[in-house]
């Protein structure tokens, strides 16, 4: 078997390959499903219905997708510049902390003041958190994979300290949770009696802007150049350090916004289980999307469908909801194979 590079990729293939990859992942995951004792076809049917089959299911999926789009964009932008930001989870939590600090007292009467302030605070907090490892990287050459990853745990412990200390709600009867976000700072629901909130619109706008940034602007040009060949970028006159710092602000800020959405749009107060790993899932979303900001939207929806669907299927059939992680992980692997297939033709000898 040999791989030969393709000169051009037919459209049918570039659309078909990712779909085949997802199908392949579902086929592969049939085995563990069967081992868990579930009827495979029925399980997948329940999953689909649980994620898309009703108005409630659909809105639940959209609510799940919103933070995933933001953390996915955070990872995609950073990875484009080869800034390996694994700290989306920590940036998300710090964004949520900032939202609570700014948004748990009604210091302004208008939501038109409070909501932008809460979002700005969350963005800034996430950005600041990623600036630390990025500066350590550009100044001292410290590996950002290690620092961003480990900061996640530092931040989570910090949040734990806050919700059991200075930020704890006196009315919580001792539960580790913060004071609630005030009405004026709460992100409005887009659809009544569901969990779809303004954060979804913000995520979609962010994706469109991120695409515009990467594909059409001078800054995006620098990001792509620095990411693909830093030494040519430097030779051409770009400052790799400035580019990385700019990317860090955007990436950390977007992850911070995801935290704002969760605390001010869904939960209403801060706890240590605010995020079921959205920061980490964002990395998977970005990889599935091949770092394309518009692809991030599709990939986030896919991951949300799997998570919401698997939850509902698991409840119905008594299968552990870890099956969702398994399906997402398997599709990441099959997607990698599919991208290889898009770039190379397989020749059998």
């Amino acid at each position: 078997m040999r791989l030969e590079p393709r000169e051009e990729v037919p459209l049918s293939l570039s659309v078909g390959a990712p779909l085949l990859a997802i199908l392949g992942a579902l086929v592969l995951c049939a085995l563990p499903l069967a081992v868990a004792g579930a009827p495979v076809l029925e399980a997948y049917g329940l999953m689909l219905r649980g994620a898309l089959g009703s108005r409630f299911a659909l809105t639940e999926t959209l609510a799940r997708a919103a933070p995933l789009i933001l953390t996915g964009l955070a990872a995609a932008l950073a990875f484009r510049a080869k800034l390996w930001n694994i700290g989306g989870e920590g940036q998300l939590y710090l964004g949520a902390v900032a939202a609570v600090v700014v948004g748990s007292t009604a210091w302004a009467a208008s939501p038109y003041v409070m909501i932008p302030a809460v979002m700005l605070a969350g963005f800034a907090a996430g950005a600041l958190l990623l600036l630390i490892p990025t500066l350590l990287k550009t100044r001292l050459g410290v590996d950002e994979v290690v620092t961003t990853l480990l900061l996640n745990f530092v931040v989570l412990l910090f949040v734990s300290l806050l919700v059991e200390g200075p930020l704890q709600d006196p009315m919580s009867m001792g539960w580790p949770q913060s004071e609630p976000i005030v009405e004026e700072a709460t992100l409005p629901r887009l659809i009544a009696r569901t969990r779809v909130h303004l954060g979804l619109v913000i995520a979609l706008v962010a994706a469109a802007l991120a695409w515009l940034l990467v594909a059409r602007t001078r800054w995006g040009f620098e990001i792509r150049a620095v990411g693909a060949n830093p030494s040519a970028a430097r030779f051409a006159g770009m400052s790799t350090q400035a580019v990385l710092l700019r990317v860090a602000i955007l990436s950390g800020g977007l992850a911070g916004l995801a935290g704002v959405g969760e605390v001010a749009g869904v939960r209403g107060y801060l706890t240590t289980d605010l995020s079921p790993g959205y920061g980490y899932s964002g990395i998977v979303v970005a990889m599935l999307a091949q770092l394309n900001p518009l692809g991030v939207v599709a990939a986030a929806l896919f991951v949300a469908v799997i998570f919401v669907g698997a939850d509902s299927m698991g409840r119905a059939l008594g299968v552990s909801s870890y099956i969702a992680d398994l399906i997402v992980a398997t599709s990441l692997l099959t997607m990698l194979l599919a991208t290889l297939w898009l770039r190379y033709r397989v020749r059998w000898k």
Partner: peptide, 30 residues
């Protein structure tokens, strides 16, 4: 290694040293 970014297109390579100057950039847009 230093002359081109291989992943970029030919037109992007040609403006690699001038991308920030008119007429290749206006209001931040390429």
């Amino acid at each position: 290694h230093d002359g081109v970014v291989g992943e970029m297109t030919v037109w992007e390579t040609v403006m690699l040293e001038d991308y920030y100057r008119a007429p290749y950039q206006r209001f931040g847009l390429l």
